[in-house]
């Protein structure tokens, strides 16, 4: 058994080496497929990051009327919190708002002086709402438009952001559609090319296979070398792609980082999800090779 296994591996390697042109073509196609999968990862990671970066900057501020008590404001806060997707609410009492205002205008003595001239704090309480889903802001703001709350609220800053939020919504859905479509197209192209490559491989070895059968080889001895060279395709294309992606990201990283103000590294993102990304890729190429060679063998290796 061990000697047979050794021979299957030897013949698999011989197949690979003596048909080196075909082997390299197949591996190139597999590498291209994997690279396109990686491009999808990059697109996904960057758009996600971009969307959340804008999301982070977007919030809605509710300015209460000056005479509103903090308790009443808390009631509104509790109401807003009851919406799903609301990540965070911050209720700032008038004196906190004043302190922030003074801090903000530290270098403008005229402003500070005029504020201090007033014997009463002119600034109202403010409720800042952050949502994980920008589409929610409109719902929340509209829900606050009931008479009960309208009396308490002086103004909302939502109107200033609504355009941006709508745009983000549109872009997010479009990028998602595009990425999904691309995945499908790349996958299909890869499948067709690889199926063809393996069909050609089997076709070019038809003679060899019939000879192998005639001299009394068992079925597994005929399939074995194919399975082994298939495995070799998987391992080599996977290895080559990993190296290419590693160096590709190192080159790409400085350009991507410029787009985001905080330190954002694609490489780190990849490393953080390395296990997941790698098993997805290994699974993709293994599935492609297994399915296409199984189909091709069924048609041409009538054993």
């Amino acid at each position: 058994m061990i000697i047979s296994l050794a021979r299957v591996i030897t013949f698999g390697l011989q197949n690979f080496w003596r048909n080196i042109g075909l082997s390299l073509t197949t591996i190139t196609v597999l590498v291209l497929t994997l690279l396109s999968v990686n491009i999808l990862f990059v697109v996904n990671i960057t758009t996600n990051r971009a969307v959340s970066a804008v999301n982070d900057q977007v919030d809605v501020s509710i300015y209460f009327r000056p005479d509103v008590q903090l308790d009443e404001a808390r009631e509104v806060e509790a109401f807003v919190k009851s919406f799903s997707d609301v990540v965070e609410t911050t209720l700032k009492a008038p004196d906190v708002v004043l302190a922030e205002f003074i801090k903000q205008h530290e270098r403008e003595p005229a402003v500070i002086a005029s504020i201090k001239e007033l014997d009463k704090n002119p600034l109202p309480a403010v409720l800042v709402i952050k949502s994980g889903n920008p589409a929610m802001y409109r719902t929340i703001v509209e829900a606050l438009d009931v008479p009960e709350y309208k009396l308490l609220i002086e103004s909302k800053t939502f109107d200033n952001h609504s355009l941006v939020i709508d745009k983000i919504n549109v872009i997010t859905t479009r990028v998602t559609y595009l990425a999904t479509g691309l995945t499908g197209v790349f996958g299909l192209i890869a499948f067709l090319i690889i199926f063809n490559a393996i069909r050609v491989a089997i076709y070019s070895q038809r003679e060899e296979i019939s000879i192998t059968k005639l001299v009394g080889a068992s079925n597994w001895f005929i399939r074995g070398p194919f399975l082994f060279s298939g495995l070799l395709y998987v391992v080599l294309s996977f290895g080559i792609t990993s190296v290419l992606v590693y160096f590709g990201l190192r080159v790409l990283d400085p350009y991507i980082a410029v787009l985001f103000d905080n330190a954002f590294s694609l490489q780190q993102q990849f490393m953080a999800h390395a296990l997941k990304l790698m098993s997805i890729q290994f699974g993709v190429v293994l599935l492609l090779v297994a399915v296409s060679s199984a189909l091709a063998m069924r048609r041409h290796l009538r054993v």
Partner: peptide, 14 residues
């Protein structure tokens, strides 16, 4: 059967 053919082929030179 298909499984027995290899055995036969080893007894007949073609």
């Amino acid at each position: 059967s298909q499984r027995e053919i290899p055995e036969l082929r080893r007894q007949i030179g073609v």
